[in-house]
Nucleic acid binder design. Structure first.
Lengths: 127, 127
DNA sequence: GCCCTGTCTCGACGTCCGTCGAATCAGAGA
DNA sequence: TCTCTGATTCGACGGACGTCGAGACAGGGC
């Protein structure tokens, strides 16, 4: 098989450790920005931000589309579209169980985004 | 009709303390989402994410447009437009000193965004 | 098999966004 | 004052986005 140049898989959004130092500590390289920006973009819509929160804060760690949809004054297809956006941004996972589809948050990438934004009092490696 | 003015200042993006609990801890209310989503949206473009990082990680805490622009293969007006977007999202401040304009990050809102995304083992007010 | 319910895909529509060049504004200096 | 440089605003263009209704797909129950 060829190199499968997925081009941007340089950064593993599934890794457990933060992929990169805080944005305020060292300049984010162009490639990293290209990978992470879509995740922020996905969170850049009020509907998706609420969906993300509803999923991430759900009781069993997962939420059914059938519970998500009625929380908004939007059509089913529209909610489905937003969920797809979150999925493609790597923020959530979907699983079908029988008639229903359940969505589950991916804590790793959330952690990475949080780490990127973090502005620690910098017990900085003064090295 | 365009009442869509900044009537959403319910949440103080300048506050020092996080405005709200982590997204994964309790559901983000619609009003909060409406206020914070634009900030994520502003970071949802690779150019702006890099600009934000360049500003936030700058030596003296501030960066001159004249230093920012040449780092991209984009026209001056385009960079200016992105900086305006960051400004309107409350992520940076601008100050003119003589001929040059300097941009400075607002750590508070970055902290709030990071707090919202944080998935801590919740040393939360377990008091 | 048939139908019903839940979810996603498709195509369309209007709006917003990223980019540019040209024009304009703000200071510094001669 | 006039000019030069740096930065923003303006107007335009193409492409992407958010939304919808109609239709397709998946599973369960009859």
């Amino acid at each position: 098989m060829s190199k499968q140049h997925k081009s941007l898989a340089l950064i593993d959004l599934n890794a457990d450790a933060p992929c990169c130092p805080p944005l305020a500590q060292s300049q984010v390289p162009a490639e990293t920005a290209a990978v992470l920006a879509p995740a922020f973009k996905a969170l850049g819509d009020p509907v998706r931000l609420r969906l993300m929160s509803m999923i991430a804060s759900a009781e069993d760690g997962e939420a059914c589309v059938c519970d998500l949809t009625p929380a908004f004054n939007l059509s089913g297809p529209t909610i489905s579209h937003h969920l797809k956006t979150l999925r493609e941004a790597g923020l959530v996972d979907a699983e079908r169980r029988g008639t229903w589809v359940y969505y589950r948050a991916r804590p790793q990438i959330l952690r990475q985004l949080a780490a990127l934004l973090s502005i620690e009092p910098v017990a900085a490696a003064t090295a």
